[in-house]
Design a protein around this nucleic acid. Structure first.
Lengths: 357, 357
DNA sequence: TTGTAGGCGTTATCAA
DNA sequence: TTGATAACGCCTACAA
């Protein structure tokens, strides 16, 4: 139930100012140009440019003097002029499938940290797990002309792979370990994640398993590994239930409910993402199903909530921030023009053992 | 407990390709320029430019023909050349205090939707609730030269307010209702939020209250309203506990634990953000404290988890996506050069009544 | 309604 | 190591 609270006249928030008010300058001071800095420093504009961007090409003393003038004047080079002339922009575009996913954001954050230190700006777009949206965003890249692109995921649509390759810029894919990334990859094996899930559940003594995951994409990859390892270990997978686009915990509860309707007697469920797993834990609790005694629940991805559930959720994951940082470092190296020893980096999976299995 | 799972050789993910492989073009096709489009369409470059950006200035038939050629050639104007010549960039910078907060991201998403439709790109930065970080990000704006800036929050530091005003671009503040925004505002009254909390708890019959919130900032604003209304209603506020920088649900549990140590006998707690409230619900459950019978818990902000808790959390919030959309619409209007009838827009608060009060 | 001329601020290129 | 010259691609200003 929602009650709208429209105060007849809303109260002001009396925000504490951190310093006393000063009169606000109104005229947008025309920004300093490189020419002015050059004049003040007694050198030519190109020398200022070099002092800032190719410091080794300028005599030490002169460089320091120039930097001093730059600091005094507050000069900042115009990125548009720079990009226009040099053909290199300082924008890196990141595409996430879901902006509200802490995992993706953590990775983007890690990547941003690294790239910002090199003077790059990140822009973030959301593909919303839709080929169409992804296509239109990739299309718009031709207008944005970023220096590089990062995906929290891999690009499945062949047409999009081609378009990206044609951009002629570094393309980083993540979150999986495909045979043939477009360009660069910092990922992990979803297949092994699925295998690890089956192996863990087997080791804990569960025999009759079920799978709950997102349709297609990485869910399918995890399912294949899970199925494969379960077969090798002689376990039965009584049900493979896939759902379309779980967005909320409520979707996870509903999916788990459906699973219970179909196969109430499995003794462990591998939920191939934590949103589903969290929903399952809440729903189990709601129904008085004891976890893990009556039914074990294993997640994938880990979130802030996973560790706080009752019981805390056992889950398989990678270090998302580290993934982002490694991707950022690899991109940075490439953007600096250095040669890479390898374009593919695979992270270890982690099994975080809590109490739900 | 974390077990690292380093497969000796990670398995490939056999990703399903959506279309058959085609050979990847290697040469980054030099992009089409306006001149070429003009040549093919039999007009001058400036006419192409007008057809795209000031359509009303070009004869209908000619315009349609030009657009056709544009589509054929895949022409996209170079944003850097555009920005350099026109002095207007298509980048809007958004600053959020915490990138992992779904509320802020939802607002940014709403704003992005609106602005993307107008051809703008969003870049997102995180201020991490730190004046220092905020200052350095604002400093970097001078280099980025965005068309506008959006804050999910308001700028408290006077020096930063001045710097922003000096940029001479539209500045949008949100998430509060200060007397003197720098430039534009789409916000809500935190003070009224605090008042509403006290009024709601009073109406439900609770008499001995406590406050749990973040130190400073909006936490302080909510506290003031809460304190004020409680006094008017003759309620006691037995404890006002503020915590430094709660980041996780675990921080919320810890804070609530401290509150219980200090005042175990309050009958209702207003947790001035949902992270703290969620932690409190988990901790209460852990201790066997019945919510709301033994102690009522009221949140602020609403999240995906809030509605799924046991019991579901009563909370005070605004529609974050709508806030973002309104901010985007106001910015778009301003960027189009239209005059605004008002620069301040205040959203209604919503009390979402669930079961924790 | 359309076109011509020129410059936005920077850096590539070549010369000293 | 430093500088002169020109050009990146587009759009403003002005003219027709």
């Amino acid at each position: 139930m929602i009650q709208r609270h429209a105060a007849p006249i809303p109260s002001f928030d009396d925000v504490v100012r951190v310093k006393p008010d000063a009169p606000l300058a109104s005229a947008p001071a025309r920004s300093v140009r490189i020419e002015e800095v050059a004049r003040l420093a007694g050198v030519s504009p190109i020398t200022v440019s070099r002092a800032l961007h190719q410091p080794h090409k300028v005599a030490e003393a002169k460089r320091l003097h120039i930097l001093q003038v730059v600091a005094q004047t507050g000069y900042a080079s115009n990125p548009h002029a720079r990009a226009l002339r040099s053909g290199q922009s300082n924008v890196v575009a990141a595409f996430v499938s879901n902006l509200l996913s802490a995992q993706f954001l953590l990775a983007v954050q890690g990547c941003t940290e690294v790239l910002e230190a090199e003077g790059y700006q990140m822009i973030v777009g959301q593909t919303a797990y839709s080929y169409e949206k992804e296509s239109s965003m990739i299309e718009s890249l031709r207008a944005v002309r970023p220096a590089a692109v990062l995906f929290t995921g891999i690009v499945e649509l062949e047409e999009n792979r081609r378009k990206l390759a044609e951009l002629g810029i570094p393309v980083m894919e993540t979150w999986a370990y495909p045979r043939d990334p477009i360009d660069m990859l910092v990922g992990f094996s979803n297949h092994d994640g699925g295998r690890l899930a089956a192996e863990h559940l087997a080791a804990r003594g569960y025999r009759k398993l079920a799978f709950l995951g997102r349709q297609g994409g990485r869910g399918a990859l995890r399912l294949r590994g899970f199925r494969e390892a379960a077969a090798e270990l002689g376990l039965s997978v009584a049900l493979e239930l896939t759902v379309d686009h779980p967005k909320t915990i409520a979707d996870g509860r509903a999916a788990f409910t459906r699973l219970l309707d179909m196969k109430p007697d499995v003794d462990a469920v591998f939920c191939a993402n934590d949103l589903l797993a969290i929903g399952a834990v809440f729903e189990a609790r709601h129904r008085g199903i004891r976890v893990p005694q009556d039914m074990a629940l294993l997640g994938f991805g880990d979130t802030d909530v996973s560790s706080e559930l009752q019981p805390p959720l056992t889950t398989i994951t990678v270090d998302h921030r580290e993934l982002g940082q490694r991707a950022g470092a690899m991109l940075a190296k490439r953007l600096r023009g250095e040669t890479l020893d390898r374009r593919i980096d695979v992270l270890d999976l982690q099994l975080i053992l809590r109490e739900s299995t």
